[in-house]
């Protein structure tokens, strides 16, 4: 794991990618910091995080697109997976390298609240600022895990970057989208039925087993109808709730207000853990099919 971590980290800094990532992140935050905190003298650094979550849409694909895809294209994964190393270690080594590259600008951000002390000592709440920086780091960590997973699905860096961008974009807008979704039970029924059909098609494509796909669809649909028949109200607003699961960015809000929101911490760590796990599974599946 350590070998892969070191190699990966080095690769980011022998190519322009690592520098580009760090420079761009610091540049965007620097603009806001200068305009809001320094020029206007607004004593709340965390506030700008809410406005800059969009940078992940661009930066995460830049950092993660090559991490697994390039190994597959260059066939260097043959070295990794024929060495006496577990797949989990390979993936974890890579993920930790991603986190390290990301941690460098975040650590630099920790200096910003100190800078703001020059504006006035009692104006700035230091614990609040550092909680928001922690939240910002966790948000990035979750996004990077998603990028890592998508990169493991393809051997084309470009495709990985585009897919990661799209997925993060959908997540980014999911809170806004949720507002437009009708909250009635019937709409929910239709929506979930459509979702079940999509799931069945995916099962069919992956297993080529008609009975399994149809069976899964029938069972899920029956369960859905049972819920609908038993307690209609349960479905009310459920679509919006579903959308909010994917809403990664707005969980940052509590951190920014200085609340160490444990559910959000758990959420971010779960997202990161889930996608690292899925990456391992995606690699294992490809080896065995």
């Amino acid at each position: 794991m350590l070998a892969i971590y070191k190699r990966e980290l080095k690769a980011y800094f022998t190519s322009p990618m690592g520098y580009l990532f760090i420079a761009f992140l610091l540049f965007v935050i620097g603009i806001y910091f200068t305009a809001v905190n320094l020029v206007q003298g607004y004593p709340w650094f965390g506030f700008i995080f809410i406005n800059v979550t969009f940078v992940f849409l661009i930066l995460v694909p830049i950092l993660t697109m090559r991490i697994m895809a390039e190994e597959r294209r260059q066939k260097t994964d043959q070295l990794l997976f024929t060495a006496p190393v577990k797949v989990v270690d390979v993936v974890l080594g890579k993920y930790l390298a991603l986190l390290t590259v990301y941690a460098i600008p975040v650590l630099l951000l920790c200096l910003y609240p100190v800078l703001m002390l020059t504006l006035g000592k009692d104006m700035v709440s230091m614990p609040m600022e550092y909680v928001s920086i922690l939240g910002f780091f966790l948000l990035g960590a979750a996004n990077l895990a998603i990028g890592l997973f998508i990169s493991s699905l393809t051997e084309s860096q470009v495709l990985a970057a585009v897919l990661t961008f799209l997925v993060l974009l959908v997540c980014y807008f999911s809170s806004s989208l949720a507002q437009f979704v009708p909250s009635s039970e019937n709409a929910a029924l239709l929506f979930f039925t459509a979702l079940i059909i999509v799931a069945a098609v995916i099962i069919y494509v992956m297993t080529k087993n008609v009975f399994l796909a149809a069976g899964a669809a029938i069972v899920l649909e029956a369960a859905l109808l049972a819920v609908y028949a038993a307690n209609k109200e349960l479905l009310q607003g459920s679509v919006a709730k579903l959308f909010s699961i994917f809403d990664i960015s707005s969980r940052l809000d509590n951190f920014v207000y200085g609340i160490l929101d444990l559910t959000a911490v758990v959420y971010y760590l779960s997202v990161a853990g889930l996608f690292v796990f899925l990456t391992v599974q995606a690699i294992q599946k490809r080896r065995w099919s």
């Binding site: 190699r7 690769a11 260059q74 066939k75 260097t76 994964d77 043959q78 070295l79 990794l80 024929t82 060495a83 006496p84």
Partner: peptide, 15 residues
């Protein structure tokens, strides 16, 4: 895997 050294068809080199 410890007792095997493997050179695949395309050498797995990091450029």
């Amino acid at each position: 895997k410890k007792s095997i050294g493997y050179l695949p068809e395309q050498p797995p080199l990091y450029m």
